[in-house]
């Protein structure tokens, strides 16, 4: 057994600074959840479902197959971090209002993916939304409402642009 915590990692998660000492093989997902950042979920552990999606230095990635060491000096954003002063981000609001969250376990990953998409493309068509969500597995909704939610969020953000955390 490797002796636990030898790897220092300093990073900013949802605007808060962390200094971790981790086992060297720790994944970013394990580090976040150990730090009580519980939005990202462990579901498949193999990168196949995106329920652990986070934004690492501006790019959405799967935290389950990202080494925590890669977050050293980096900025991490998770679904919790999209809340501003307790107010839902338009992506979150759209997911809640369209019924895009059923059991909700995949939802933080969808929200992060949708947020990343809309940063890159504020006016995606439905095909672009599907392509962007193509790796996010949901077992409850059949994807109709998540796709609708992203299109709705895009509309809202275009009419009332809010830069959102992590944006330049």
């Amino acid at each position: 057994m490797p002796d636990g915590s030898t790897l220092p990692v300093r990073c900013t998660v949802n605007g808060r600074e962390y200094h971790w000492r981790l086992a060297p093989g720790t994944t970013l997902l394990e580090a976040l959840r150990a730090a009580q950042v519980r939005g990202p979920k462990l579901v498949c552990g193999t990168g196949d479902c995106c329920a652990c999606g986070v934004i690492l230095d501006g790019r959405s990635v799967n935290a389950c197959c990202t080494l925590a060491g890669k977050a050293d000096g980096a900025t991490v954003l998770t679904a919790e971090g999209l809340l501003e002063a307790g107010r839902l981000h338009p992506v979150q609001a759209a997911f809640a209002e369209t019924g895009a969250a059923q059991c909700g376990f995949c939802t933080p990953g969808f929200v992060i993916r949708a947020y990343a998409l809309l940063q890159e493309d504020p006016d995606p068509d439905e095909a672009a939304v599907r392509a962007a969500l193509g790796g996010n597995i949901c077992r409850c909704t059949g994807y109709v409402k998540p796709v609708e939610a992203v299109l709705e969020a895009a509309r809202r953000m275009r009419s009332a642009p809010a830069p959102g955390p992590g944006a330049p």
């Binding site: 519980r38 939005g39 839902l88 997911f95 809640a96 059991c103 933080p108």
Partner: peptide
């Protein structure tokens, strides 16, 4: 819904 979309 609020808790779910916020990753609570």
């Amino acid at each position: 819904g609020r808790a779910l979309v916020a990753g609570a």
